[in-house]
């Protein structure tokens, strides 16, 4: 089998250029603005804000208007922690529930289990689990460890994130379900990924002779 150097060189250069271009483009997308996806009022005057954003944690924390009464901010990082992080803010409306608690951040580099357990102060415990890494048995185990439970179920596309959190003032088990489709939060990256993916698919098809341009040209000439 004799190698056809022209195609090979083309695909090689294309693949390298695509990788470099994709890297540069996505790194720029990190500075895209965040958006508040959903705001829902919970019982006991508690508000939960779900913010889907991408970019460094620090920009969000500094930009967000932190309640003077004290807030609990839990940063749920979707999958790896850079793209499409989900930030939950639990802010009591009528009482300084988390006075002095300031900011609690939980983030994860990878979705290992358990991802992170934080005990910042005053008995606030938070555990973040990616549901695809956990079985119901371990969930029950986790629940049994926590007497006062705030359970947040968060659907992000196919990913299912669960946050176990027991702020000390909550006597009852509170269950909230939210569905957030975060694909709209990184449109530029998505478009770039689509273009790069399309080029790679076409390149692969060319490499396997599924698309034979030369044959079509010859056929046209013969006609």
């Amino acid at each position: 089998m004799k190698p056809e150097r022209s195609k090979g060189a083309g695909l090689s250069i294309l693949a390298i250029l695509m990788t470099i271009g994709f890297t540069a483009a996505i790194s720029m997308v990190d500075s895209a603005p965040k958006e508040i996806t959903e705001l829902r009022e919970l019982p006991d005057g508690l508000f939960a804000y779900a913010i889907v954003h991408h970019g460094p944690h620090i920009s969000v924390i500094s930009d967000f208007p932190v309640d003077s009464a004290g807030v609990l901010i839990v940063d749920l990082s979707h999958i790896s922690g850079t793209i499409s992080q989900v930030l939950f803010m639990l802010a009591p409306s009528d009482r300084p529930l988390f006075a002095g608690a300031s900011t609690v951040m939980i983030s994860t580099p990878f979705n290992t289990f358990p991802t992170y357990v934080a005990t910042p102060n005053d008995g606030i415990h938070a555990v973040m689990i990616h549901a695809d890494m956990v079985t119901w048995d371990t969930m029950e185990f986790r629940i049994s460890q926590i007497d006062q439970l705030l359970l947040l179920n968060l659907d992000i596309g196919e990913e299912f994130l669960i946050l176990f959190c027991n702020p000390f003032a909550f006597g009852d088990v509170l269950e909230i379900s939210m569905t957030i489709y975060d694909s709209t939060s990184y449109p530029i990256g998505s478009v770039i990924a689509f273009i790069v993916g399309s080029v790679l698919i076409i390149s692969a098809a060319l490499a396997t002779d599924l698309i034979d341009i030369d044959r079509r040209r010859k056929r046209r000439r013969s006609l």
């Binding site: 790194s27 790896s80 992000i156 694909s183 990924a193 399309s198 790679l200 692969a204």
Partner: peptide, 30 residues
């Protein structure tokens, strides 16, 4: 670390996003 390549692939594998899915198919095909 720079551009979350694996994250994009994971998003594609879970069909969360069309762009990510296309990228993942392209990467797999190549």
């Amino acid at each position: 670390n720079l551009m979350s390549l694996h994250t994009w692939i994971a998003l594609g594998l879970t069909f969360t996003d069309l762009g990510a899915t296309t990228l993942t198919i392209g990467i797999l095909a190549s």
